[in-house]
Design a protein around this nucleic acid. Structure first.
Lengths: 218, 218
DNA sequence: GTTGAAAGTTAGCGTGTCTTACATATGTAA
DNA sequence: TTACATATGTAAGACACGCTAACTTTCAAC
């Protein structure tokens, strides 16, 4: 009987095939449930997964999850939190690959935003959807995960302004709006409905040019 | 038509002499269910309303709706269809109030798009969300309700091009993307989270200028 | 009036969320 | 090693919902 705690559960006897030593304790059910929920959310959408099903997938009873989470919302809040962290980290990492203050850097951030939405539409909806946010957001703000603030700083660099310049905020918000809308149009399949051939790269480049230039004469 | 109905099915007939006789038949349950669903969708969101609750609101048993609709999806498809029609009609009506080919007309359409999303976020999500569309969309296309096509025509007018010019489609799509993103950011409360003061009018004017102008030098 | 279809009803199955009471495994202290 | 406290699992069940089946009431055509 191997005993272990939740830290490194992977090194254990995963090779015991026929013996089927069904342990009473899962090992790290909490993490397994979060990951299982994430998968299910991608499969069926944030509003059509069930705690019961993710419990079945983890091989435990449908009551077991409630030892680790207060309710369903708390599980998906955890998935949402993980997604926000991944999202932020990707942003920072990708930005560092392009020259500071370059339009390319900002353009690449927009591209990443859309790519994330397409790669993880379920989590994307979770992050930017209306439900289940307040708590997670509160906590992440406390931990200084502010993706929009990061983008604003990059835009400010391009414009040659201070990191918190109002005009930089405004331009960054316009760009956010654009990639946000594009993401939803794509993952909700509205583009196909409208029958438009979309070249995301070209669109991002075009919009980047238009928005990062000087204000047009009113 | 009155919408009163009986709650006690086995009441002795001898004592039923009240002026408002309780009807066994509702009168127009189908319409009442659609309207009740619309209200509930606005209240709780498209994914958190229940057929049972809307049935209760209409004063009928939870099985009654299935005399009029195959399943839950068919009810909300009907709500979605009604929303699309309202959306389209508003667009056409508002456009007619501004000079053909004017930037103002297009700008006003964008403003209306966002206003609709804010006024009816539930229905807006229904229309542009991923679920429950295929059938409704098919039918509305058959009835020539093509909102995007209409906007494209307005944009083409501004650019002085043919109604189906590819560049007009491209510009219109950029504008759609922008107002779509802005709508979602607003109704999902992401704007407040980011702590940005947003002047929707000014934003629309700015973006309209930027997008409807000539292509920036690549 | 009779009758058949339309539009209600109740009863109930399957699934889902979440609670309560109970069972088992694990870590620590004696 | 034993014993206990605690963490983590199970089983059973209350209640809501989606939907079906079988029955009842109403209405309109004949």
């Amino acid at each position: 009987m191997h005993t272990f705690n939740g830290k490194d559960a992977h090194v254990d006897q995963s090779q015991q095939k026929s013996a089927e030593k069904e342990r009473y304790h899962h090992g790290d059910l909490r993490a397994a449930l979060i990951e299982g929920t994430r998968r299910l959310v991608e499969e069926k959408g944030p509003d059509h997964f069930s705690v019961a099903e993710v419990a079945r997938a983890a091989g435990v009873s449908s009551a077991a999850p409630y030892r680790h989470f207060r309710d369903k919302d708390e599980i998906i809040a955890e998935v949402c939190k993980g997604g926000m962290e991944r999202h932020y980290e990707q942003m920072v990492r990708v930005a560092s690959e392009y020259p500071k203050g370059s339009v390319d850097r900002v353009r690449r951030l927009g591209q990443l935003y859309v790519a994330f939405a397409q790669a993880e539409p379920g989590v994307f909806r979770l992050i930017f959807g209306s439900a289940h946010k307040p708590d997670a957001v509160e906590e992440l703000k406390g931990r200084e995960i502010d993706t929009f603030g990061f983008v604003v700083a990059q835009v400010a660099d391009v414009l040659g302004r201070a990191p918190d310049d109002p005009e930089a905020v405004r331009r960054a918000f316009i760009l956010w709006t654009f990639v946000h809308g594009l993401s939803f149009l794509l993952i909700d399949d509205n583009v196909r409905y409208a029958g438009i051939p979309i070249d995301v790269e070209a669109l991002l480049a075009d919009v980047g040019q238009r928005v990062l230039r000087d204000v047009p004469s009113a």
